[in-house]
Design a protein around this nucleic acid. Structure first.
Length: 260
DNA sequence: TTCGGAAGAG
DNA sequence: CTCTTCCGAA
């Protein structure tokens, strides 16, 4: 166990958890790993985005926004990854549309092939003291938090190293105390890439090598650090995110199993 | 181009 | 469940 410092703490017993900043639901899902299911589309997109991959897709002008520059190429790439030779943009975009109800993505209307990840809005909801972090971000883009095991703002090494990692979703530096936040990061330090701060040319610096994801996940398996996931503890982040109605949680047409 | 229903695969 | 496939409508 690399992370003994947290496993003994029951997350639900902490008052912090009930009102702290949380990731959007989907952000907790680990990226592809050998034992688990296949890559998900949003993971794949983030991966390409993070690598600045060859022109098929790139970040847009707003934070979290991305533009599909070459839809059919992107579809081909996606198809290759999933072993679906007949993938095309029509199908890929249908998958994208399923993300709308899940609040993972939304469409940037009026901009062709442009979508936006739901990063910003979701993140600091329920953190009344910190309505606006964008300015902070653009001014100090490098203040990223490491996926550390810690408490009270004190970082603890893992395997002799504290791994630096750009975090795309969160702005821990926006918080008064990083206590709950740091904990929140450790279990599922999720993704590789960073959406660009508005108007910044920092993308290059924010990009992480592809290997980072694998590294992070192998070093910080969720079970080890004990960060509660929705699946294990029944948390539903949608409750923190502004009340998504059941009817909007996606796949509503796929059965009358509304009470899930 | 974009949307979302319907059915089906794994 | 997460798409994939197909398709009519706007």
């Amino acid at each position: 166990m690399q992370c003994s410092c947290t496993s003994s703490v029951s997350p639900l017993s902490s008052p912090y958890w009930s009102r702290t900043v949380l990731f959007p639901d989907w952000a907790y899902k680990p990226a592809w790993s050998p034992g688990s299911r296949q890559v998900q589309l949003w993971h794949f997109l983030l991966e390409l985005l993070g690598r600045g991959e060859g022109g098929a897709i790139g970040w847009g002008s707003e934070w979290g926004e991305f533009v599909i520059q070459d839809p059919e190429t992107l579809a081909r790439l996606w198809g290759e990854r999933k072993g679906k030779p007949h993938m095309n943009y029509d199908k890929l975009s249908r998958a994208l549309r399923y993300y709308y109800n899940k609040r993972i993505l939304h469409k940037t209307k009026g901009k062709r092939f442009t979508y936006k990840f739901n990063f910003s809005k979701l993140i600091l909801v329920n953190y009344p003291g910190f309505p606006m972090c964008h300015q902070v971000i653009s001014k100090s883009p490098h203040v990223f938090l490491s996926p550390v095991c810690c408490s009270q703002g004190r970082t603890i090494k893992q395997n002799n190293t504290v791994q630096p990692m750009a975090h795309p979703f969160l702005h821990p530096y926006c918080l008064p105390k990083p206590i709950p936040f740091v904990r929140a990061l450790q279990g599922h330090a999720p993704l590789v890439s960073a959406p660009p701060p508005p108007g910044a040319h920092l993308m290059r610096e924010l990009r992480l090598p592809l290997g980072a994801a694998a590294t992070v996940h192998s070093d910080f398996p969720s079970a080890v650090c004990g960060w509660p996931t929705k699946s294990t503890l029944g948390w539903d982040l949608r409750n923190f995110v502004g009340g998504v109605k059941e009817s909007e949680t996606g796949y509503k047409s796929l059965g009358r199993r509304v009470e899930k």
